[in-house]
């Protein structure tokens, strides 16, 4: 019903314009029933099918007193302007691992025309200029309009059967789900494009489709060509860890002999490489046979850790192995762990 002020055109105060008013009300009611989405502004302009009525008036004093006359009324109908824009809702590259499936890119399709219009949606994962292509692309419509893909809630799009119909200025969120190939490697990007094309017609701005406009007039292609597209990008962010272990022996006689009673200090260096991060990285090491773990000897980056698993710190010893929880570690960093045993 927010359309009413735009659709309401009164050229004069004569009864004819009140008929136009009532006609406009009926139009507005049917529009709101069809409306898809809720965001309504006034950018699209006068609603298609609206009549613009113009009548001038003159008043003067004639010989018989004041006279008011109306001119003829000129009636012009507003045609449907076919316009659409598509924007990516993803703020930047979406970080993914290779081999993951059903990764989501998000777009917003807006009817910037002035009539109700249905749009054909197409996903293009084979764009040139990127490093790899995603596969098995499917399109979903954000049925609950929350901007987030909800499996089981949002509707799978099938061209020709549930093309979204948008009221003027209304928007709908669209998701493309596609699979990242196993072959994609760290640092590679993939472009995923969504296009939306007005079903009534598209092409060179100014192209007219006689009698096909919403509201009964013509449909005219607007400045967008009635064809919009936008891209989101996936970026492979992988990471690997390499673990290097070394040992230093100190015997009780001040030397470095592996004799019973000597202390072995083990050093574990975890080196993380790649553009991504490793999450939940845990390092464990068994205490070797014929050695005894030296209580409270675990260090991480030179700082001591306790043996208890119940406290907040990252280290623990369970009687047979030491464990250190490193959490999330980005590529390019190292973590150094040490612990000590004595030779039995």
């Amino acid at each position: 019903m927010k359309y009413v002020p735009k659709a309401l055109v009164i050229g004069s105060k004569r009864s004819k314009s009140w008929l136009a008013f009532r006609g406009a009300m009926t139009l507005a009611t049917s529009l709101s029933a069809l409306a898809f989405g809720s965001s309504i502004a006034h950018a699209a302009g006068t609603i298609a099918g609206t009549d613009i009525l113009n009548t001038a008036q003159a008043s003067y004093d004639g010989p018989g007193g004041p006279v008011v006359i109306d001119s003829n009324t000129v009636t012009i109908t507003v045609d449907e302007l076919l316009d659409v824009t598509v924007a990516s809702s993803d703020p930047g590259d979406i970080a993914v691992d290779s081999g993951v499936t059903q990764q989501v890119t998000t777009y917003q399709v807006t009817n910037t025309g002035n009539g109700n219009e249905a749009f054909t949606l197409t996903a293009d994962t084979a764009k040139g200029g990127d490093d790899f292509d995603t596969s098995n692309a499917v399109i979903y419509i954000d049925t609950d309009d929350n901007g987030v893909f909800d499996a089981g809630v949002d509707t799978l799009y099938s061209p020709g059967s549930n093309d979204p119909v948008l009221a003027p200025d209304a928007s709908v969120n669209i998701f493309i789900l596609s699979d990242i190939p196993v072959s994609a490697t760290d640092g590679q990007r993939a472009e995923v494009e969504l296009s939306a094309v007005a079903i009534t017609g598209s092409g060179t701005p100014g192209t007219s489709f006689a009698g096909q406009g919403d509201g009964g007039g013509d449909a005219v292609v607007g400045s967008t060509g009635a064809d919009g597209e936008a891209s989101s990008f996936f970026l492979i962010q992988a990471a690997q860890v390499a673990l290097v272990k070394s040992a230093t022996i100190t015997d009780q006689f001040g030397g470095n002999e592996a004799v019973p009673g000597a202390t072995i200090t083990y050093q574990l260096v975890a080196t993380i490489t790649g553009s991504g991060s490793l999450t939940n990285l845990n390092v464990t090491d068994d205490i070797p046979a014929d050695t005894t773990y030296t209580a409270e000897s675990i260090t991480l980056e030179g700082a001591g850790l306790t043996d208890s698993d119940a406290d907040a710190d990252a280290g623990s010893y369970d009687g047979s192995e030491i464990a250190v929880s490193l959490g999330t570690v980005p590529g390019g960093q190292t973590r150094t762990i040490t612990f000590q045993v004595t030779i039995d």
């Binding site: 302009g45 113009n54 001038a56 003067y60 004041p66 012009i76 507003v78 045609d79 002035n114 013509d218």
Partner: peptide, 30 residues
């Protein structure tokens, strides 16, 4: 028919076709 964004030119023509002058003459276009 027109589309939003079209530029319109409105022309109102007047003429005294009677036999007496029209005083206090004004033209209004809503």
């Amino acid at each position: 028919t027109v589309v939003p964004g079209d530029n319109l030119v409105f022309v109102v023509k007047y003429k005294n076709v009677g036999s007496t002058p029209a005083t206090d003459f004004s033209v209004t276009n809503p």
